[in-house]
């Protein structure tokens, strides 16, 4: 990151007033609509709630309730799905994205065009992505008939209703949605490596696969760091795609449930008895999610920082 520190400028009253004026709009909006709700969310997780009303202080009781039945099955299931989602995106999206970026880097011709094609689905709303793929994957739909005509499938295509496959279908759709990002970031990263490094390796007789693995990869750590962190944050925030394609219950039989869809059901009364909200439990889950994201994000950034090759 470019962190050229601002030089000590002459301190003038005029400049101080400007600084305050410039920071103020963002500060007011941010404190009111981000910091305050965050604080009250964290605080509220320590209370018992009735509907949308805060009742007595219960300490860590909500947190304890999360880890016992009936919540534990849902919590552990959702957490596992988020972990699978993260790993799936790392391989399907970022791993393939790296290979594609390298191929584009080697070839150069048509790079800009293909980058745009890969990036194109990212401008779609998750609602449209979900609707589109649900229609494509429906029994009697386009994908089924395509697989039929290629002879790859007989009978009905029911993967979205199949609890072993549904989660992986969603992960693949998500990977398709954001494939352009790793391609873009890795292509940019590869171009920033000194060309001499590649030439030297080639003269030593290293093949393309070897150059990618031993020469390029260590120098791509900043790109890998950005992508891993973004992937982690996005996968643990996964909601829209599940909600649109599989409903808020994460159908079939909670096989595609995530931490955020579980949160949503708790907060808006779709868990257990319909219409009964459990805000305390939801806020406890939200607090844990916030802590998890913050701790792991900082951990990931530190981990990669130590592995960055410096010149």
């Amino acid at each position: 990151m470019s962190t050229s520190r601002p030089r000590a400028a002459p301190v003038e009253w005029q400049k101080h007033r400007s600084a305050a004026l410039f920071v103020l709009p963002a500060l007011v909006i941010y404190c009111l609509f981000v910091i305050y709700p965050l604080a009250s969310s964290l605080w509220g997780s320590l209370f018992e709630w009735r509907g949308f009303r805060m009742r007595g202080f219960v300490g860590l009781d909500n947190f304890a309730r999360l880890f016992v039945e009936p919540s534990w099955t849902k919590l552990s299931g959702a957490f596992t799905h988020n972990v699978f989602w993260f790993l799936g995106i790392m391989v399907l999206q970022n791993g393939l994205g790296l290979i594609f970026a390298y191929l584009l880097f080697l070839r150069r011709r048509g790079t800009a065009f293909l980058q745009s094609v890969f990036f194109f689905p990212a401008v779609l709303s998750p609602v449209i992505v979900g609707a589109l793929w649900r229609l494509l994957l429906t029994p009697d739909g386009a994908v089924e008939s395509l697989l039929h005509s290629l002879g790859l499938l007989e009978g009905r295509l029911t993967i979205l209703g199949d609890s072993t496959w549904a989660l992986w279908v969603l992960i693949a759709v998500d990977a398709w949605n954001w494939m352009g990002l790793p391609v873009l970031i890795f292509t940019a990263g590869l171009r920033q490596i000194q060309p001499e490094v590649f030439e030297a390796a080639r003269l030593d007789g290293a093949g393309n696969g070897r150059i990618l693995w031993s020469i390029a990869l260590p120098q791509l750590v900043p790109s890998i760091s950005s992508l891993t962190t973004l992937t982690f944050i996005n996968t643990f925030n996964q909601f829209d795609l599940v909600y649109v394609m599989q409903g808020v219950q994460g159908n079939p039989n909670f096989a595609t449930d995530t931490l955020v869809t579980y949160f949503f059901r708790l907060a808006f009364g779709a868990e257990g008895a319909v219409g009964i909200t459990d805000i305390g439990l939801a806020l406890a889950l939200g607090t844990l999610l916030f802590l998890l994201l913050t701790v792991v994000t900082i951990g990931l950034l530190r981990f990669f920082e130590r592995r960055t090759v410096r010149f």
């Binding site: 709700p37 806020l283 916030f290």
Partner: peptide, 21 residues
């Protein structure tokens, strides 16, 4: 530092208080 720390705050965490606000 506060700006950075809350940059990747999951929107869902603040959804309920924000809605009430």
């Amino acid at each position: 530092a506060i700006t950075i720390a809350t940059m990747f705050l999951p929107p869902i965490v603040t959804l309920i208080p924000l809605y009430r606000l």
